[in-house]
Computed example of a mutant assay.
Amino acid sequence: MLEVKVPLRRRLIAEFCGSGLLVTVVVGSGIAAEALSADDVGLQLLENSTATVFGLAVLILIFGPVSGGHFNPVVSAADWLLGRRAGTGLSGAEVAAYSTVQVVGAVLGAVLANVMFDLPAMQISATDRASVSHGIGEVVATAGLVLLIIALARSGRAGLSAAAVGAYIGAAYWFTSSTSFANPAVTIGRIFSDTFAGIAPSSAPLFIAAQLIGAAAGLGLVLLLYPDAPQAADRVVVPHPATTTTSTSKET
């Protein structure tokens, strides 16, 4: 019996579906919250964040064993940067493929949410979120997310990632000024929802730049705290390195 990586095609399908459904959860719950609690923004945020916590945890449980459950280009890039010298984690080409399907899935996830709530399928958000404070919030949110995910993988606790990542994102909705997008694919997807959960196209570049800075900061902290973390890249977000087969061929 020979162990090989899960075929890339299957991993990309998992990342596409997971990223798309994550944005559907975020946008759909935002639309519902805005309709149900029109005069209470705090309650809207509570409803939106609660749905996101549980939705993200479930999606990691469903798709994580296939692709790792990244659903996030900065997580995939961190996985590659962490493991490239140790020969673990994603390759550069796989990161590009993961990121592409994550973004496409996120956009279609927003469209799906719009259609489910009888809104125009294609919208462009007018919600301006561009400010220094929002940018700092995204740096903090993304750095914490990367640190959490890799710390769990390195310490053999990646099985807790569904609950832990969901809990972190739920908390970061409230303790960051940006409500913790922490994900370039989700940021792009949310452009296509002119609702409570949307973000204007003019605000997205600031968010994405802050997310990249935050990911670099989180990865730097990981390497300072856990110098042996590169060996754990195959377990980000959850273990997904191999499947057993009797053939020596490898599907890509």
Rank of each mutant, 00 (worst) to 15 (best):
E3F: 05
A38P: 14
R11S: 08
G28P: 13
L56E: 03
T50L: 12
D40S: 15
G28Q: 13
A57H: 03
L36G: 15
V58L: 03
S49Y: 00
G55Y: 05
V6I: 11
S49R: 02
V53H: 09
T50P: 04
L56F: 12
T50M: 13
T24H: 08
L21Y: 00
K5L: 01
S37E: 05
L36C: 07
D39L: 01
V27Q: 14
L59I: 02
G55I: 02
T52E: 08
E15A: 12
R9D: 09
G28L: 10
R10D: 08
L45Q: 12
L12I: 04
V53F: 15
A57M: 14
T24M: 11
L8V: 10
R9Q: 11
L21T: 04
L12A: 11
S49F: 01
E15N: 13
S19M: 12
L56M: 13
F16D: 10
L8W: 03
G28A: 10
E47T: 12
V53N: 05
S29P: 06
V58N: 00
R9V: 13
A51E: 06
V41K: 15
T50D: 09
E34M: 15
L56G: 02
L56P: 05
L56N: 05
V27Y: 13
D39K: 01
C17W: 10
N48F: 14
S49C: 07
L46I: 15
L46N: 12
V4G: 06
L36W: 06
E15C: 10
S29Y: 00
E3W: 06
E3C: 07
T24S: 07
A57S: 12
L12P: 04
C17T: 13
